[in-house]
């Protein structure tokens, strides 16, 4: 129900954005760009983060962006600062930013990895995670967060929040993660992180 409503607003925003864009003779500045520009200070130019921890949001799935912002604003997703920032925007604003960042190109973080952990992590990924985070967690169209090429501390924080129970995972994920964690423990988590940060 909520999704339908958001979808409608998205279309309205797109139409309005399109009307504005047709009037400008140069690479126009629409509301989406205006809003997205304010994120660059922490998330990097065009949403590509230079690290060491803040995630890249370039190329993010629209739905996942919206879901994340709403979860931060409601407090259901733990955060340091995003719960304060996310409350500053209307649904239309969030929709516009989601649209903007989904069109930017994701660039993988360049960071040191331990190759043997990467290989172990890949096996765990294929067994427990690939079904939803397909192609090694690199596809935005999964409507899950892009895991491939994210900064390592960010992956650590989020997996820590899931495994410690601070953050609620979707049902299927909770089940898979628990199975993985029960069998491989924190080592398994570290291996997964190493795999994603190597991609």
């Amino acid at each position: 129900m909520k999704k339908t409503k958001l979808g409608f607003i998205a279309k309205a925003a797109l139409v309005a954005g399109g009307m504005l864009a047709s009037n400008v003779a140069f690479a126009g500045i629409d509301r989406a760009e205006m809003l997205a520009n304010t994120c660059a200070g922490c998330h990097g130019p065009n949403g590509v983060s230079h690290g060491p921890a803040t995630p890249s949001i370039a190329g993010i799935s629209k739905d996942y962006f919206i879901e994340s912002m709403n979860a931060y604003a409601s407090g259901s997703r733990p955060s340091t600062i995003m719960m304060r920032i996310a409350k500053g925007y209307s649904e239309a604003d969030i929709q516009a930013m989601a649209e903007y960042f989904s069109k930017q190109h994701h660039q993988s973080a360049v960071q040191a990895v331990n190759e043997s952990l990467v290989q172990k992590g890949e096996k765990l990924h294929n067994k427990y995670c690939e079904k939803c985070h397909s192609e090694g967690g690199s596809l935005a169209s999964d409507d899950a967060g892009i895991l491939a090429g994210q900064w390592k501390p960010y992956l650590q924080y989020n997996l820590h929040d899931f495994t410690s129970g601070n953050r609620e995972a979707p049902k299927k994920m909770a089940k898979q993660l628990k199975a993985m964690h029960d069998k491989y423990g924190q080592e398994g988590v570290d291996q997964l992180i190493e795999f994603y940060s190597s991609k």
């Binding site: 660059a40 922490c42 983060s49 060491p52 921890a53 340091t80 600062i81 501390p153």
Partner: peptide
């Protein structure tokens, strides 16, 4: 303590990203 540690790394991330935005 856990969140404060994160804020330090986010502070350093902010520095890396804003300077990339300004001078990059």
């Amino acid at each position: 303590p856990e969140l404060r540690k994160r804020e330090v790394l986010y502070a350093h991330s902010w520095f890396a990203n804003i300077t990339a935005d300004v001078f990059g």
